[in-house]
């Protein structure tokens, strides 16, 4: 058995293990991740909703980065359009 064969076997094993680990909980983990992201989103836009956030100076920088996900987030939260005045989305 060459080194390449061993490597191939290991990568197959690793694939099996990864799938065995992830497959049953893919949905649950994705939802958990999304909930965490939503909380983060809330922190970033909290000042606009009147919730004081001492770190606004820093989180302001993140707003453009989060913009793409903002649309999905407000849709998911049950709001047809952006809930923030002066911050249009769609």
């Amino acid at each position: 058995m060459t080194w390449a064969d061993i490597k191939k076997k290991l990568s197959w094993l690793s694939y099996l293990a990864t799938e065995a680990y992830n497959a049953p909980y893919r949905g649950a983990v994705a939802r958990a991740k999304r909930d965490e992201d939503d909380l983060f989103m809330l922190l970033i836009f909290s000042e606009m909703m009147g919730v004081p956030n001492p770190a606004t100076y820093y989180t302001l920088e993140l707003q453009p980065i989060m913009l793409e996900r903002f649309h999905e987030w407000h849709k998911r939260a049950g709001m047809e359009h952006s809930p923030l005045d002066g911050f249009r989305c769609c």
């Binding site: 099996l16 799938e19 065995a20 497959a23 049953p24 893919r26 949905g27 994705a30």
Partner: peptide
């Protein structure tokens, strides 16, 4: 790619069996 994702049948069997 979360709940609905085509999976290799051996992997799926392993997951189904252990569940």
């Amino acid at each position: 790619d979360i709940d609905f994702i085509p999976t290799n049948r051996v992997v799926l069997w392993g997951h189904h069996f252990t569940a």
